[in-house]
Each structure stands twice: as structure tokens, then as C-alpha cells.
Simulated assay, not measured.
Amino acid sequence: MKVIGINGSSRKDGNTAIIIRTIFEELNKRGIETEFIQLADVDIEPCRACFACKGKGNCVFRKDGFAEVFSKIVGADGIILGSPVYSADVSSRMKALLDRGGVVAAVNPGILKHKLGVAVAAVRRAGGMTAVDTMNHFFLNKEMIVAGSTYWNMVYGREIGDVLKDNEGIANMRNLGQNMASILFKLN
């Protein structure tokens, strides 16, 4: 089994990366393979809404990194989407991925069906629920299964590493990783 974790932050190895890696620790303890993608390293242009991807399983435009990332999503059993909250929602990098991925999956029905999805947000103060909701809508509209935890899937912190001081949030991420592993084993 394999889980892809996608960090939608423009800041590499920041708080969003920390919380995704916290979930990875729990998955790795149970022998689940993980791969980490940082969108700070990947250019993804906005969707053109041309629908040329219909029946092709991926976007026809290949000059950016979207097609490679989406292929990894399709090949994974589980997907973790993580975003910081900059302005009351997901980052622009995450939004570009969700918009293009949403169109590709919509015109190629079933391509993500029954995969497991987890959405997490690194939050300074507010907007975390909106960000998690945005990512969960992507999962739910593609017939994916969404895992939850004991509380909202967000961890508070501003400066890099501050999320580690949010003990409740980090415990929630560990529990989320355990729940994700349990569900993956049941699905497979």
C-alpha cells in the first residue's frame, strides 16, 4: 500500500510538511509506503477548462508538473492533502492542483473511486475549517473515502516548528495516521 502526501505550502519543510510527516510516521510504523510531494517544487498552472482530458485519464497539457503529480495520486491507495491557510482557505498552489485534478477526475469517472483521502491544515488563527472543507470536497466529489480523527484536522502555529507546540493538534495528526492505516488495511 502506498500513500502520497502533498504539501500545498509555498514554504518548503514548514508547518504543513511537519504535520504530514507526523501522519507518515504512523503509516510507516504499520509498513505503509509513503511519498512526499512539495508543491513549492512543482509548477502547476490553472485549469483551462478545455475538457481535452476526457477519456485520457490525465491532463493533456504537459509543460508543468501537474500530470506527474496526478499520476502519482491515481497510483496511490491513499492521499493526504495538506495546506497552510494564508487567506481563509487553501493556498493558491493547492487550489490549482484541486481545480485541475477535479476536472480530470470529473471527466474520467471512477479514476479516484474508493481511494482514501485525508485533508489537513496548518493554521495561524482562522480559516482552517474552510481549507479542510475545500480539500474534503475534492475527495467526496470523486467518490473517495475520507478519514477523520478525534477533532478537526488542523494544527495551530505560525513560525516553522510552532505546530509542534500544539500538543492536541499533533496528537490528532497521530490518531489520524492510525485511523488512515486501519482503513487502508480494511480496504486492501
Rank of each mutant, 00 (worst) to 15 (best):
T16Y: 06
I18H: 09
I19Y: 05
I19E: 08
I23P: 01
F24D: 03
E25M: 11
E25C: 07
E25Q: 15
E26L: 09
L27P: 05
N28F: 01
R30S: 14
I32H: 02
E33W: 00
E33Q: 12
T34D: 03
E35P: 05
E35S: 11
F36D: 05
I37D: 02
I37F: 01
I37Y: 06
L39I: 07
A40T: 02
A40M: 06
D41K: 12
E45S: 15
E45Y: 14
P46W: 12
C47N: 10
C47R: 11
R48N: 14
C50K: 11
A52W: 12
K54Y: 06
K54H: 03
K54T: 13
K56C: 06
G57S: 10
N58D: 14
N58Q: 10
C59F: 10
C59A: 10
K63V: 08
D64H: 11
G65I: 02
G65F: 02
A67Y: 13
A67G: 06
E68A: 14
E68P: 01
F70K: 00
F70C: 01
K72G: 07
G75P: 08
G75C: 05
D77Q: 05
D77A: 07
D77P: 00
G78N: 04
I79H: 03
I80Q: 12
L81V: 08
P84N: 05
Y86L: 04
Y86F: 14
S87M: 08
D89V: 04
S91T: 07
S91K: 01
S92D: 09
S92K: 07
S92V: 07
R93I: 00
M94L: 04
M94N: 02
M94Y: 02
A96Q: 00
A96R: 03
L97M: 03
L98I: 15
L98Y: 09
D99R: 10
G101F: 02
G102Y: 06
V103L: 15
V104D: 04
A105T: 01
A105M: 04
A106K: 15
A106L: 15
A106Y: 12
N108E: 11
P109D: 02
G110R: 10
L112F: 10
L112M: 09
L112V: 02
K113Y: 09
H114M: 13
K115G: 11
L116S: 03
V118R: 01
V120Y: 08
V120T: 06
V120I: 07
A122R: 00
A122F: 00
V123W: 03
V123N: 04
V123C: 08
R125H: 09
R125T: 10
A126D: 12
A126I: 13
A126E: 14
G127V: 07
G127T: 08
G128Y: 08
M129P: 09
D133T: 14
M135W: 07
N136E: 15
N136V: 12
F138V: 07
F139P: 03
F139Q: 02
L140Q: 08
N141Y: 13
N141F: 11
E143S: 15
M144G: 07
M144T: 10
